[in-house]
């Protein structure tokens, strides 16, 4: 069970945080198709900073501090990269689909170009000597003690970055839904003309939305590189950004349902790749392995289940009304 939950988190947290990134942008009225590209860029910047600092001989003993630096770097990198989208979508009123597609093309090309120059190889890694994972010993749990489920999940073999990300997720969701700022942001995505008429600076709000989106996607990319790619940035996040886009739509542009959608998807992905080793009720029998179903059936599961759920729930689907439309003062 602990295995199942921990592995689900590996898929779920990057998906969730990047889907929230998409939500911030789209709620402010800008379609952010570039999530994949921003993730790639963020992962690269985060890993690069950790590498630079530890190569300089600093922070070798402070892995957790370095982790925070890496996260911040990834977020700032993602934010800056997303400004390219913001400029084209907001200032130049360009087609947002094209802008996003361009960034998706640009990020892997740029990252690979730079990685080859920096390392002379096609990956850039966090140093092997750094272990960002925390074990039971780090939480003061003795070696011989039997762990309960909570301790197994939260206090052994964990990346603190996951919990930072979850914290950020909750805080930003609250901001989006329960503050004046959040309301203003969302109004820009629903009816920018109305927002403008009550004195909200739509373009500024959209800039903020896209930038927050960029920082979060950058963070998501870094989390993916750290937890799922062994600390390596390779100019690829395995289509995670597009899946996050799907999770965002699946979750109906709403943080709470996005979390649910990400969980469903992550759990299915976990079952798909580890079904032989999931002990559901803890009796030592791996039931799924004994069913004798082809691995491909399990692999299709996450996608098929998403489609089935969508088929039943989509009637209440609401995209932000003004997403994709450039805002113009002159139009009322």
């Amino acid at each position: 069970m602990a295995f199942f939950i921990q592995q689900t988190l590996v898929f779920m947290i990057p998906l969730m945080i990047v889907a929230l990134a998409g939500t911030f942008s789209e709620r402010s009225g800008v379609i952010n198709l570039a999530l994949e590209g921003i993730m790639i860029f963020g992962a690269f910047i985060g890993v690069l900073f950790i590498k630079i600092i530890s190569d300089a001989g600093l922070g070798q003993d402070h892995a957790q501090l370095l982790l925070i630096i890496g996260i911040l770097a990834a977020m700032i990198g993602g934010g800056i990269f997303s400004l390219l989208l913001a400029v084209s979508a907001i200032n130049l009123k360009a087609d947002q689909t094209i802008g996003g597609t361009a960034l998706n093309l640009l990020a892997p090309a740029l990252v690979m170009f730079l990685i080859i120059i920096i390392t002379g190889s096609n990956t850039i890694n966090t140093p092997a000597s750094l272990d960002f994972m925390l074990y039971r010993g780090d939480f003061g749990i003795a070696e011989g003690k039997e762990l309960n489920l909570f301790e197994q999940i939260f206090m052994n073999k964990v990346y603190l970055s996951n919990w930072y990300a979850l914290g950020l997720y909750v805080i930003l969701s609250v901001i989006l839904y329960f503050t004046k700022f959040g309301l203003r942001l969302r109004s820009c995505g629903e009816h920018p003309q109305a927002a403008d008429s009550v004195g909200i600076n739509v373009n500024k709000m959209r800039y903020i939305g896209v930038t927050i989106s960029g920082t979060l996607a950058g963070l998501g990319g870094f989390l993916f590189a750290l937890t799922a790619a062994g600390g390596a940035s390779t100019g690829d996040v395995a289509g995670m950004g597009f899946l996050a886009l799907a999770v965002m739509i699946f979750g109906n542009w709403n943080p709470l349902t996005i979390a649910g959608a990400a969980f469903v998807f992550g759990a299915c992905k976990c079952i798909a790749s580890g079904y032989q080793y999931i002990d559901i009720n803890g009796d030592g029998i791996y039931a799924l392995a004994n069913l004798g179903i082809s691995k491909y059936v399990y692999m299709i599961l996450p996608y098929a289940i998403t489609l089935i759920i969508l088929a039943f729930t989509s009637k209440n689907s609401h995209a932000p009304k003004a997403e994709g439309q450039p805002f113009d003062h002159g139009q009322r």
């Binding site: 799907a246 739509i249 996608y303 489609l307 689907s317």
Partner: peptide, 15 residues
């Protein structure tokens, strides 16, 4: 079913 085509496209790609 009014399902956004982007999501169905991404899912059917992988399927």
């Amino acid at each position: 079913l009014n399902v956004n085509e982007v999501i169905t496209c991404i899912m059917t790609n992988w399927i």
